[in-house]
Amino acid sequence: MRIAIDKAQHVEEAGTQGTLAIELAGERVLLLPEKALYWPREKMLIIADIHFGKAASFRALGVPVPGGTTAANLHALDALLARHAVREILFLGDFLHAKAAHAEATMTAIHGWRLARPSLKLTVVRGNHDAHAGDPPARLSIDMVDEPLRQAPFAFCHHPDLLVPGYLMAGHVHPVYRLRAGWDSLLLPCFLVGEGRVVLPAFGAFTGGHPVLPEPGERLFVTSGDTVVEVPVKPHVRPE
């Protein structure tokens, strides 16, 4: 499945500043500076690795980390819902971080958010963390499915290395890219876009990132939080 991304261009529509429009498998999609992807034809917002309850999981293990990450994630979702016509949010795995994510405070916050949006369809493609955490409570009205979830021309997965029919969208890696300028460097979340797949950055407020280099045939788009731009980099060549 080949893609066309030579026509990548920033969108000039109201409320889409910094957004980059590209074509994947014949479909126009938007790479959002908020570390998400939007499929206009289906009015679908695609999110990877939100990891609800990760901070609570750390605190349950006695690690002192700040609170408020669940609220930050929900606020970030609301900001995107305000800017785009969204019928469905599709989470590409790792919706919950661990069993401790079922803490009452975390579930109550998500449930309250869900009650205010009863017509919004929520779907989660289970990831490796979801397998350990268990499905969220039924009261959240979330459709839980195993990978791949196929909706032509795409195959929605958590893991990016699966062999599936269709153009693959995945997360799991939490990709970031290190920009260098002299002695200075900066790690930024990035989208890896190739002929057969796109890997999304982690959306969650408390997720971290894994530095990556593009494979042959891949292009790399970084986000500063305000805009998405392509970074011309030499592809990573694996040794024979």
Rank of each mutant, 00 (worst) to 15 (best):
M1S: 15
R2I: 15
R2C: 13
R2W: 15
I5R: 15
D6E: 15
K7L: 07
K7I: 02
K7P: 00
A8R: 15
A8D: 13
A8K: 13
E12C: 05
T16A: 11
T19C: 10
T19R: 04
T19I: 06
T19L: 00
A25F: 04
E27Q: 15
E27G: 02
L32A: 02
L32R: 02
P33H: 02
K35C: 14
P40I: 08
P40L: 09
R41V: 15
E42M: 13
I46K: 08
I47H: 04
A48L: 01
H51R: 06
H51Y: 00
F52G: 11
G53Q: 01
K54V: 07
A56Q: 13
S57P: 01
R59F: 07
A60V: 01
L61Y: 05
G62N: 03
P64L: 14
P64V: 12
G67D: 13
G67V: 11
A72Y: 00
H75V: 12
A76M: 07
D78V: 03
D78W: 03
D78C: 02
A82H: 07
A85N: 09
R87H: 15
E88T: 14
L90P: 07
L92K: 02
F95T: 02
A98G: 04
A100G: 07
A101F: 06
H102G: 08
A103L: 01
A105Y: 00
T106Y: 01
T106W: 00
A109V: 05
G112A: 06
W113N: 09
R114I: 09
R114W: 07
R114S: 14
A116D: 10
A116P: 03
R117E: 07
R117N: 07
S119K: 14
G127D: 08
N128L: 08
N128Q: 06
H132R: 14
G134S: 05
D135R: 11
D135T: 12
P137S: 09
P137I: 08
S141F: 12
D143F: 05
V145M: 07
E147D: 12
E147W: 04
L149P: 03
R150D: 03
R150T: 11
Q151M: 09
Q151K: 14
A152S: 14
C157N: 04
P160A: 05
D161S: 09
L162W: 09
L162R: 15
L168S: 09
A170V: 04
P175A: 11
R178S: 10
L179K: 12
R180W: 02
D184M: 14
L188C: 10
F191W: 04
F191N: 05
V193P: 03
E195N: 12
E195V: 08
G196A: 14
G196H: 15
V198H: 00
P201T: 14
A202H: 01
G204W: 02
T207R: 09
H210A: 13
H210F: 15
P211A: 07
P214N: 09
E215V: 04
E218S: 03
D226Y: 08
D226A: 12
E230G: 12
V233P: 10
K234E: 13
V237K: 07
V237Y: 03
